[in-house]
Design a protein around this nucleic acid. Structure first.
Length: 312
DNA sequence: AAGTCGTGGGG
DNA sequence: TCCCCAAGACT
């Protein structure tokens, strides 16, 4: 029974990887010349952000900071500025922090070991597995939202909701993972690609699927998600929107910004002050600067290397 | 462990 | 228009 199941999974792996050979998108971080650092940067940027929005910032980022050491030598605020409008700017801070850690603890080389990767700020179980697999060809369970959806549909017959992966889910994913590292790495990209372009969340293109006959979800007649309703994320008027508006002002200014400009970006005072305080707490914003001379209150992106801690 | 954290495009 | 959601991590 075990052998039977694993054989079926191996067949799925073969079919999906063959499909990938013919249908893979040409993404720059997948090209042979891409360094582990380039892959790591792409993974940070791709967290919750669509591929098409990442291409250009990724290229500019690596032009400017071709190595972890290069980024580590720049102020963290420059990373926040270069992050632009990718969203979730704390990722920029964490990527900078990861670069510092790589420079200090790993001799400037992106580590290949899962636990070492996970020790870096902003690197969770998905990103660690992705870098180990994509950059180093290691055998790792790469379980992102795409792969979860593919496995959920094919093996379980129902797509999972958007919470974090369960232990049971990881066990199913492990059953698919081929023994050979190179094959496992191939399966990781291929299954992710399938979820990204064919087995999509909305309007899946089942006509283009390499394994329709193996899909439990299709056999069951494409049932809707029967569990609890997904939590909708409102955005208008939230602190997140306010933070985004304030940070956009600071990003576009080369010099510290005074209260008038922040008021213009977000008139409501209570929420503005709360959001500003949270940005400072996160290390995304610093100020007022004491050495700035007068008692004028001004704010800026962080100038030092540390996240939140300014140099003396 | 549910909430928080940006931004923009497509159905 | 509105709603969904896109290679998650952290607390």
């Amino acid at each position: 029974m075990e052998r039977e199941a694993r054989r079926g999974e191996a067949e799925t792996v073969r079919a999906v990887t063959r499909w990938y050979d013919e249908n893979a998108r040409d993404l720059p971080w997948r090209r042979p010349g891409a360094t582990p650092w380039a892959v790591l940067v792409s993974e940070f940027m791709l967290q919750q952000t669509p591929v098409e929005r990442v291409r250009e910032p990724w290229a500019r980022w690596l032009e400017r900071w071709p190595t972890p050491a290069a980024l580590a030598d720049s102020p963290s605020g420059e990373a926040v500025r270069a992050w632009g409008r990718l969203g979730y700017p704390r990722r920029a801070l964490r990527l900078h922090g990861a670069a510092v850690a790589i420079a200090e603890r790993f001799g400037g080389e992106v580590p290949a070991d899962l636990d070492d990767l996970r020790s870096l700020p902003g690197v969770g179980s998905y990103t660690a597995a992705a870098v180990a697999s994509f950059a180093f060809g290691r055998r790792a369970v790469v379980l992102d939202t795409n792969v979860r959806r593919v496995i959920g549909r094919v093996a379980i017959g129902e797509a999972y909701p958007g919470t974090s992966p369960t232990r049971a889910e990881t066990a199913v994913a492990e059953a698919y993972l081929p023994d050979e590292p190179a094959v496992a790495a191939r399966w990781a990209v291929a299954s992710m690609e399938l979820g990204a372009v064919v087995c999509t969340a909305r309007r899946p293109r089942c006509e283009g699927c390499p394994v329709p006959e193996r899909c439990a979800w299709r056999r069951a007649g494409y049932p809707e998600w029967s569990g609890p309703p997904r939590r909708g994320q409102t955005y208008e008027g939230t602190d997140r929107q306010c933070r985004g508006a304030l940070l956009a002002v600071l990003r576009s200014s080369d010099s510290p910004v005074g209260p008038e400009e922040l008021e213009a970006a977000w008139p409501e005072p209570v929420q503005r002050e709360r959001a500003l305080a949270s940005l400072v707490a996160d290390g995304l914003v610093v100020g007022p600067a004491p050495e700035d001379g007068g008692d004028e209150v001004r704010w800026a992106l962080p100038g030092g290397r540390g996240a939140g801690t300014s140099a003396p």
